[in-house]
Design a protein around this nucleic acid. Sequence first.
DNA 1: GTAACTGCAAAATATTTGCATCCTT
DNA 2: AAGGATGCAAATATTTTGCAGTTAC
Lengths: 138, 138
Amino acid sequence: MDNGIAAILKKNQLSITESRRKILELFLLQDTALAHHDIEEKAQEKFDRVTVYRTLQTFLEKGIIHTIPTPDNSIKYALCKDNCEQGHHHDDHVHFICTRCGITTCLEEVHVPEIILPQGYKTVQTEVIVSGICKSCS
Amino acid sequence: MDNGIAAILKKNQLSITESRRKILELFLLQDTALAHHDIEEKAQEKFDRVTVYRTLQTFLEKGIIHTIPTPDNSIKYALCKDNCEQGHHHDDHVHFICTRCGITTCLEEVHVPEIILPQGYKTVQTEVIVSGICKSCS
DNA sequence: GTAACTGCAAAATATTTGCATCCTT
DNA sequence: AAGGATGCAAATATTTTGCAGTTAC
């Protein structure tokens, strides 16, 4: 596993540092989306808040993670399963937010539908966020 | 128009005050979604920032407006065309964000598709945000 | 050794809360 | 008159920036 982490960082031309390792590990272990706040907690104050901001920013730029906008406006971050391989790419899966337990997950197997817009609009990206009750909570 | 504003407030059992009038008017005139920041600007510093927060909060609770989560994590607010009539209700339209001019609009005529989720998940609400180029910018 | 990354301090922003005063009904 | 809404001050929370010291390669 640790090997995989280093590989991902290397693939993206990032130097392998303690915080990047650790934060990336969190995402790999987690499998649900994490808010900045979650990361601070889970990392057990191991590093500075600023470092978390900068690390997330870096991961975003490299396309290692992507953001998920939520109705309550807390940004969540999740791994880009595909992007780890490449450079850039858009998500094409649906995001799910459980209103009971609060977890946010990428439903990789559910693809976003094509939305037909009125004349004149050009679609670049479509984001679908479904709120409801997750498997564990129902 | 002013008449309509008072009517909407009354319908929602809200007292008619200067700030509520003004902010509601902004939404009615605007027809695109507004961020907290936009409102402060457009209102020309007429009232306190705190009042804007509280007014938006009140409108949200009454279902007069709804929030639109955006990928860059700035919350936008827009009128609930239907909700003004009733009490509560969920949007069923698609939101569009122009990456060039930044405007966010409700595409009332484009309905959100039904998303089929895996076994065990229960959908309560679906939010669709399309980013791209709007009519005016293309 | 060099460039990049981190931590700390501090600035800049954004949001929330308490309370006295004012306005709507 | 009474309850609710507003404005101000201030407390919190969040995010960004600068810089000096440290680390990865």
